[in-house]
């Protein structure tokens, strides 16, 4: 699928055609996959909720693309695009969303709570902010064992930054000068709660000063700006400049989950630049820069749609877990499992 070529991301932060194309492909795949998931949800084919990333693909994919496969990545709710850019396949994403026992979480966890820790891809727990310090610990471990050059990256929202876990973890990462990039998607709402009820800061990037870390802002609807700003933050982290806080402004162009019509979002905000659809902006950018023309984009779209359709068929065939044959031991050390009652 996507192969990140290191020379693209290391040498420069410039949004080269190759990088933009990779990011765009992940964005498009994520959008089409999200649409498929929404349809499956409405058809009653999905257990639990569906949480989509519509409007946040540029930011998320720019991060996933800027990372190396040896880095650590802890994405969050709206990072379908970043996950794909970091190397997750459509089949793998669908396995968790449809509960296939062949997925990395083996039906034990689902939807956005998926990852492969051995590959540096961390599965979030629901509790917002909790994964940041875990990424930090992985980086600390690598430092202690003399493995250098890797960075960690993690995502959070304008609501998640209000948690104690966020505060503790960012402060600790700053104290230890860990090579960590924290990307805040400020979509101005945490579920229904507007940003004014989360923070009294003028801008969330002001928090960077308080933690003693470098702060960056990005237009989350613009693929070029996301690519540039995140590339810069990643390079600085890799160069040993310590944690980098990136705050991107955008809007969530969907409900909090597919159960939510998001009628609380201020209409006036939707008419500003942050209300733009980053996929439309990216499409225009690629055309303007002669990276892809409309026909090539339509072809790509058709190709990805076919890939998703066949992945859905495959994963549905995989079925669900057998609860009676399931291994109900929560410990790696089986002899220490409490005897079943």
């Amino acid at each position: 699928m996507q192969t990140a070529v290191d020379t693209w991301t290391n040498s420069t932060t410039a949004p080269t055609s190759a990088r933009l194309l990779e990011i765009f492909r992940s964005m498009m795949t994520a959008r089409l996959l999200d649409e498929k998931l929404a349809a499956l949800y409405r058809a009653g084919k999905i257990h639990g909720g569906v949480f989509l990333g519509k409007g946040q693909e540029a930011l998320s994919a720019a991060l996933g693309q800027a990372l190396r496969r040896t880095d650590v990545f802890a994405p969050l709710i709206r990072d379908g695009a970043g996950r794909l850019a970091f190397g997750e396949t459509v089949v793998e994403a669908l396995r968790s969303c449809l509960g296939s026992p062949q997925g990395p979480m083996r039906s034990r966890d689902g939807n956005v709570h998926r990852g492969r820790p051995r590959d540096g891809y961390l599965p979030m727990i629901s509790h917002l902010g909790a994964m940041i310090s875990v990424v930090g610990g992985m980086l600390l471990s690598r430092r202690l064992r003399g493995r250098r050059g890797d960075i960690g990256a993690t995502c959070i929202g304008d609501g998640g930054v209000s948690t104690g876990a966020f505060h503790e973890a960012v402060n600790l990462a700053a104290v230890e000068k860990l090579p960590l990039v924290i990307v805040v998607a400020n979509n101005h709402y945490a579920y229904s709660t507007p940003i004014e009820k989360q923070t009294a800061c003028r801008s969330l990037v002001d928090k960077a000063v308080g933690y003693g870390v470098q702060g960056h802002t990005a237009d989350g609807t613009d693929i070029v700006d996301c690519c540039k700003v995140i590339g810069e933050a990643v390079n600085r982290a890799r160069a040993g400049e310590g944690p980098q806080l990136v705050v991107a402004e955008l809007l969530r162009l969907c409900g909090h989950g597919e159960h939510d019509d998001a009628n609380y979002i201020d209409r006036r905000l939707k008419e500003t630049t942050i209300g733009r659809d980053c996929l439309d902006v990216a499409r225009e950018t690629l055309q303007e820069r002669n990276i892809m023309d409309a026909e090539a984009i339509a072809q790509l779209r058709a190709e990805i749609t076919r890939e998703i359709e066949s992945a859905v068929q495959q994963v549905i065939k995989e079925g669900g877990p057998d609860p009676f044959a399931h291994d109900w031991c929560a410990l790696a050390t089986r002899r220490l499992a409490d005897p079943p009652l």
């Binding site: 994964m131 610990g137 980086l139 202690l144 104690g164 503790e168 402060n171 600790l172």
Partner: peptide
């Protein structure tokens, strides 16, 4: 030495543990 951050201390230790420490 760690800062007074029990949540992040344990989170850090989890990360270190899954990375082999």
């Amino acid at each position: 030495d760690a800062p007074i951050s029990e949540d992040a201390i344990v989170g850090t230790a989890i990360g270190a543990a899954i990375e082999g420490l």
